[in-house]
Design a protein around this nucleic acid. Structure first.
Lengths: 256, 256
DNA sequence: CGTATAATATTAATATATCACTTTAGAATG
DNA sequence: CATTCTAAAGTGATATATTAATATTATACG
């Protein structure tokens, strides 16, 4: 039944087995999950989906991707499964794999989660922020203004994300931002689809500035209020959008 | 039966080849990700790790698990990768895979995340709770008391989890609880290891009752206070525990 | 001409095989 | 006896093949 490596196996079964019964105790482990083909494909695919380069509802052909990368389907599958866990890809067994439609009815909840998590970060940050950390935030604000002046929308978005990450780091809980990013994905796709780089940058910077001032004053309440104002501006108007891109969304109450 | 839009693709350009250029439009999809071997193994493994049946640091032999289930290594690998994403398993390339040690230094942050999310749920729940929903909570409290009387700790834990899930559902955001459960995993392992079924059940029920009363009165502030008291009681005393089970934890500052 | 049915093909899910690397035990050497 | 080198075995990562189920297409029948 089982043909192991053709060589002699030591007859005593119990005695020989214990090769590594116990764990690798804390030593300098090299790299955990190094850059592998699967991780590369994962990153690429994710980026293409979030940037809407791959449209919601579009089929995903594992074989084709595998050929494009010159690899087998195994690493592709690993990436696809991971994306399916994140809700960016939907797998219908024996039918096909597709880029997820944006679950409109789940967006308000995702937004509420983001709000809850970010409020916590600004509260902690207001309590703990040091002068040097406030200075880092101000430096980031300056960067945002530069991006505005040079009309570098891509760069502004990057700086915007860094701003929120910084707040979480100042709060002492960088993991908050990691989690926020995960829950934010569908919202990002939605916003990218609905408002094509609206000129709201000036307002966003003003709102960011208000948050920083509140943090600098160690005023948690004011910081939360400023954050709420910031987030509410990004709020969602689910209504009439579905009409324009009906096939990009799942109807409320349809599939979960 | 359902003959929906068979062969009408709107863009009449490449009419010939494209077999499925566009997506499966919302119809009653049978099962997405049905019960598969991989999902079964995933659930089993996860349960064994969370229940500490598999000790932190213990090696995981893919081949052995595959043989135990009578399957190949592929579905096992799928399950292992998913668990690695959750942080329950650590994969060291070309070395081995092991049950994760409990990351002590990450526990405070996980706890803060849980607190932020649960506070949000009780706030929303206090605003929205209907009388029938309050009644459901009271029924759950009764169930908790029954479990206490029959000394059914397993059942109590189950009811406890249901209580928090109910609160999230009343808040209108059941996804909050899903997320909380994910972040809670390492904390659960820690608590299972440190306090073996302490007789805190009576206090827990009292705290749960206080939360329900505040929700019934639509008093968000009181509800949050009651929740904080509840969670603070579960708080972590990271200090002296590491001494007793040193190999079950990762040192602060060690590997992330 | 429309509907039901059978044939076909696509694809997810799983099985099996191979490769590369690392760890570790044993042999050879000083 | 200690140290270093070498070979074996285990494991992760990837490749290739097979199976089973579904949807699509073609075909036959009313």
């Amino acid at each position: 039944m089982k043909k192991v490596a053709t060589t002699q196996d030591e007859g005593g079964l119990a005695s020989a087995t214990a090769r590594r019964t116990v764990a690798p105790m804390p030593s300098v482990r090299p790299t955990r999950r190094a850059v592998t083909v699967a991780s590369t494909i994962y990153r690429d695919l994710r980026s293409e989906i979030v940037s809407l380069k791959r449209k919601p509802g579009e089929p995903i052909a594992e074989k084709q991707i595998a050929e494009a990368y010159g690899v087998s389907r195994t690493p592709v599958r690993e990436a696809v499964l991971k994306l399916a866990d994140e809700g960016l890809i939907e797998i219908f067994p024996q039918s096909g794999t597709f880029v997820s439609r944006i679950p409109l009815d789940a967006l308000p909840e995702a937004f509420a989660i983001r709000k809850a998590l970010e409020e916590a970060t600004v509260r902690y940050a207001a309590e703990r922020a040091t002068r040097s950390q406030i200075a880092m935030l101000r430096a980031n604000l300056e960067l945002q203004r530069e991006m505005q002046e040079t009309a570098n929308y891509q760069g502004f978005h990057q700086a915007d994300e860094t701003f929120h990450a910084l707040v979480a780091e100042i709060a002492g809980y960088p993991g908050f931002w990691t989690l926020i990013q995960q829950t934010k994905v569908q919202i990002d796709r939605y916003r990218l689809l609905t408002l094509p780089v609206r000129g709201r940058i000036a307002e966003v910077i003003a709102e960011h500035t208000a948050i920083v001032e509140a943090l600098a004053a160690n005023d948690a309440v004011a910081a939360i209020m400023a954050l709420d104002a910031h987030l509410d501006d990004l709020q969602i108007s689910v209504d009439d959008v579905r009409a324009s891109y009906p096939r990009y969304f799942t109807a409320p109450g349809d599939p979960a």
